[in-house]
Design a binder for these strands. Structure first.
Length: 918
RNA sequence: GGGCAGUUAGCUCAGCGGUAGAGCGGCUCGUUUACACCGAGUUGGUCGGGGGUUCGAUUCCCUCACUGCCCA
């Protein structure tokens, strides 16, 4: 083994091991290796956008998956972590279109046309796609890259079409003219989930309309959208509203477009119970073409629908000459001005309301009536039940209620998008006659469900096979919502519809790790698709991560500039540091406030680990010798017991997906218990003359380090691999058991009863070591109180109440950095004014040469005494309480009595010492 | 309007019925042969307000306030 360099240099080491792991095929999941002794474990990655770059959110998400995958390998499982990317229809298309516009190449995608534009998108994808994959590798992700998938791969696309065809033929997919969320910038429909509500401050405009039957009498209407007045086809009041009941059935005159003749401006006054009394004046203008609720009212009362807007959000001819061609927001102020000129505007007051925004384009969406494809969700019952029954578990569990709520309020899914980048809808429309003619024109046999007359009478064929008669058959121009492909991810990536070995072995997957923001978009839909196409749940456990925020709790965003580049952090601190830092600060079920300090802490910890291992290496000696129980010191037994505890702690935390707890336990165990106490104490034996004791101490150190490295490996794969080899722990192991890589070293098991018995590990040992450490703490306290620098050698005296072995003395002396530790009998009287502290082994004195400051010592003792007196008061108050003594369980009362005795004896002792001063 | 989280030391959080904890920060001392990306010591809190249950509440229940998120 070569000597470890003085400092840990992550870059070279990370590259070296990642390349090594790849060339050893260490990440590949092979179904043929699965057996009863080697169960399957699988995760599918939430596919990032193909043109995206790594964010801290990805770091969190993928580190968790990597920890799960790596630990599963160490537990002897055959692991498949299946990676890939998503074509991200609207996101990618928007970016490419914007870039082309910026460069001046086009004004709109129509300038290029479908085919040319798609070429550009593919070019973009080839150029920027895969960046994120390279970045995931930098992070150390142990994905099986030989199976990388893309949602627009030919095989994957076929899965998408197949599912569409199937659902069409089952009658679950239909086309209809419905109110949808329209994005005027992307010029496409969006699903409800792609719309985010934002509070907006606008104005509420009160304007008057004249009642046609009662000239001179007016009704006042309040609206936030005066520009849609030309699209109004009624006004509505609540039939139970006494102010207006007598008006129902009469008409008002719509003020805009002002140039229209009176008879075209007549609007009926309706009674509809959905109208709120309290909002505005209680009179509602009804615009069925531009408001969801109004559309419903329109249906109830058979109102005409007047669409006054173009797809890009400008007003059309029906809006009247004043508004035509104007953008919807410009149109608003023009409409207001118009109303003012007509003397109809009563007032304008500030108003707060929620407006739906397009998630991607970040502009207000427009409710719009249009022809779209919808899906009635399949396998709803099974999907709801699998979570309700606990067969599929959510972590944290509270998300299952959110899921349940959504599943109980399902709205049909609008799956068509007026985009080009995506899976084209496999539907063709027939322009050449009736049903029989259509069948004949197709030229091949299809099931009868494949040809259907749509709501509007159009004859449509849906199938995988493309009609050859292109003159009479025209394909639908739309593509499918991106999520209509990603909801198939867990099985479409595994070769479905073939019953591949992969699918049979690794489906259902074990764990899914994702953000709660896509619980509806993705998780719920995958569950439904899983049941519909495999008859089974797609994953057994779902872990919902928190959202990464900055240290002020704000969401990470490009515009705020508060989103650090993970690659910069890796370059600065190393991948392991980033992973560990993020994991340590990401508790289950809570958002993560990111602070670079966390990564720094991870880096510091890597350095600590590195140096602790260097220390071992510098001691030389045989690697991993057998521990001889005869030579074990109290501290040896103590650290073995602490290790045992850490193993259980970490394993238990990981079993429950409490990653930050696991990281915290490891940190504490290694830094405080192992480095600060054990290593320092072990120097007594390591620097001692007894060769056998020295060898045995090294064996204990090797035992602990070899276990610790394995516990750390899922969190910090690179440095642990380097140290595993650097210390030679792989030497005598079979290749598949850690000989080749720590990746395959078995996950540490709790040491067990036999181990405890064989090495004589008893609770008393732990207690005794702790008592010694208390002596050390007391001594360091004295040193501090009397301003004796920690590097100055001094002598301590202990009046020991129990015999201290030579070992005990050596260890205490070493940890105190003392010149000597004298033992005196209880009868010994220290020089007057000698600083004294109480310890479990008796009084510890720090004899000071030269002047003794009696007052200082008296004050110090006084403070100590006050503290104890306060504790005593508290305990005594409790014990004096009759109801406590009679009501509390006996053991609790006994514990309090004991506490009282302990405090009392300490108090007496200190008071005696203090009184001896004067 | 409905729902879900959260409110504990300057900051980030753990504890979730029986003596208030960690890390970071602050302060003091220290280059003692693994580590100054370090070591030692130390300073920080009527556990959001108010009620209730209990012998006992930071912990359980109710209520209010504030913060954040989700769904209307």
């Amino acid at each position: 083994m070569s000597e470890l360099p003085k400092t840990y240099e992550p870059q070279a080491i990370e590259e070296k091991w990642y390349a090594q792991w790849l060339s050893n095929h260490s990440f590949e999941g092979r179904p043929e290796r699965v057996s009863a002794n080697r169960p399957a474990y699988s995760i599918v990655i939430p596919p990032p956008n193909v043109t995206g770059v790594l964010t801290l959110g990805h770091v969190l998400n993928n580190t968790i998956q990597d920890i799960l995958a790596r630990r599963a390998r160490m537990l002897g499982k055959e692991v498949l972590w299946l990676p890939g990317t998503d074509h991200a229809g609207i996101a990618t298309q928007t970016v490419v279109e914007r870039t082309l516009k910026k460069s001046g190449a086009i004004r709109h995608r129509d300038d290029l046309g479908r085919e040319k534009f798609l070429e550009k998108v593919w070019e973009w994808k080839d150029k920027h796609g895969g960046i994120i994959i390279q970045q995931l590798k930098k992070l150390g992700a142990s994905c099986d890259w030989s199976r990388e998938r893309f949602t627009m791969d030919p095989e994957y696309s076929e899965c998408v079409q197949r599912v569409f065809v199937d659902l069409f033929q089952k009658g679950a997919i239909y086309r209809g003219k419905r109110m949808v969320n329209w994005c005027p910038v992307s010029r496409t429909a969006l699903s409800d989930e792609e719309v985010v509500m934002k509070p907006q401050s606008g104005a509420l405009y009160h304007f008057r309309v004249e009642i046609a039957e009662r000239p001179g009498q007016f009704l006042t209407i309040a609206t936030t959208r005066p520009e849609t007045i030309p699209g109004d086809t009624a006004v509505a009041v609540n039939p139970n509203d006494p102010r207006y009941t007598d008006l129902i059935g009469l008409h008002v005159l719509r003020p805009l477009p002002a140039e229209q003749p009176r008879e075209q401006r007549l609007l009926p006054i309706l009674g509809d119970t959905h109208v709120e009394f309290g909002f505005g004046t209680g009179v509602l203008k009804v615009t069925p073409a531009h408001d969801k609720a109004d559309f419903e009212i329109g249906i109830r009362h058979s109102l005409p629908v007047v669409d006054i807007m173009n797809p890009d959000g400008t007003m059309n001819a029906l809006a009247g000459s004043d508004l035509q061609g104007k953008d919807r927001f410009d149109a608003r102020s023009i409409a207001v001005q118009k109303l003012t000129e007509l003397g109809l505007l009563e007032k304008e007051e500030p108003h707060q309301n929620n407006v739906g925004f397009s998630e991607r384009a970040d502009v207000p969406i427009e409710p719009r009536l249009s022809q779209q494809w919808f899906l009635k969700y399949p396998s709803v019952e099974a999907s709801r039940e699998v979570v309700r029954s606990g067969q599929m578990r959510f972590f944290p569990d509270r998300w299952s209620r959110v899921y349940e709520h959504w599943m109980n309020n399902l709205q049909d899914w609008c799956i068509s998008r007026q985009l080009w980048w995506g899976h084209r809808i496999p539907v063709w429309y027939f322009h050449g006659g009736d049903h029989a003619a259509a069948c004949q024109s197709l030229g091949f046999e299809v099931p009868s469900e494949a040809i259907r007359q749509l709501e509007d009478g159009t004859l449509a064929y849906c199938g995988l096979r493309v009609p050859s008669d292109t003159t009479h058959w025209e394909q639908d121009g739309d593509v499918l919502d991106t999520w209509f492909s990603s909801w198939l991810w867990p099985f479409a990536t595994m070769g479905w519809p073939e019953k591949t070995q992969t699918l049979q072995t690794f489906y259902p997957t074990t764990d899914l790790v994702t953000g709660p923001d896509i619980i509806f978009f993705w998780v719920a839909r995958m569950i439904m698709a899983g049941f519909e196409y495999l008859g089974e749940l797609p994953f057994r456990n779902v872990y919902f991560t928190g959202i990464i925020r900055d240290k002020q709790g704000r969401k990470m965003s490009k515009s705020l500039g508060n989103s650090p580049d993970p690659l910069d952090l890796i370059a600065k601190f190393g991948a392991d540091a980033l992973r560990f830092g993020v994991m340590r600060s990401a508790p289950l079920g809570q958002d993560v406030l990111f602070d670079e300090k966390n990564v720094e802490l991870g880096r510091n910890f890597c350095t600590k680990l590195w140096n602790a291992c260097r220390f071992r290496q510098m001691q030389g000696g045989e690697v991993e010798a057998e521990i001889q129980s005869a030579f074990l010191s109290t501290e040896d037994k103590w650290i073995l017991l602490r290790l045992d505890h850490a193993i259980s702690d970490v394993s238990c935390a990981l079993d429950e997906y409490r990653f930050s707890d696991a990281a915290q336990s490891l940190y504490r165990f290694f830094w405080s218990e192992y480095c600060d106490w054990y290593v320092e104490a072990s120097k007594a034996a390591l620097n001692g003359a007894d060769a056998a004791r020295r060898e045995n101490t090294l064996a204990v150190i090797d035992f602990v380090l070899a276990h610790a490295l394995r516990l750390f490996h899922p969190f910090m794969p690179f440095i642990t691999e380097e140290l595993w080899h650097g210390l030679g722990y792989q030497q005598d192991l079979p290749p598949e058991q850690g000989g080749e890589s720590i990746m395959r070293a078995p996950w540490p098991k709790p040491l067990g009863a036999d181990f405890h018995a064989h090495y004589g590990l008893l609770p008393e040992d732990e207690a005794r070591a702790n008592s010694k450490f208390e002596v050390v703490l007391a001594g360091r306290g004295l040193r501090r109180d009397f301003n004796i620098p920690s590097n100055k050698k001094v002598s301590f005296v202990i009046q020991s109440t129990s015999p201290l072995s030579e070992d005990d003395r050596n260890v205490i002396q070493l940890l105190l950095n003392a010149e000597a530790l004298q033992i005196e009998p209880l009868s010994w009287i220290p020089p007057r004014g000698t600083p004294t502290a109480l310890t479990p082994f008796g009084q510890l004195h720090l004899p000071l040469e030269g002047l003794v400051d009696m007052d200082a010592e008296r004050d110090r003792l006084g403070k100590e005494i006050t503290k104890i007196e306060q504790e005593l008061l508290k305990v005594r108050a409790k014990l004096a309480n009759e109801t406590f003594v009679s009501g509390a369980p006996a053991n609790v009362v006994a514990e309090h009595r004991q506490r009282e005795t302990d405090w009392q004896s300490k108090l007496t002792e200190l008071q005696r010492i203090q009184s001896a001063l004067s």
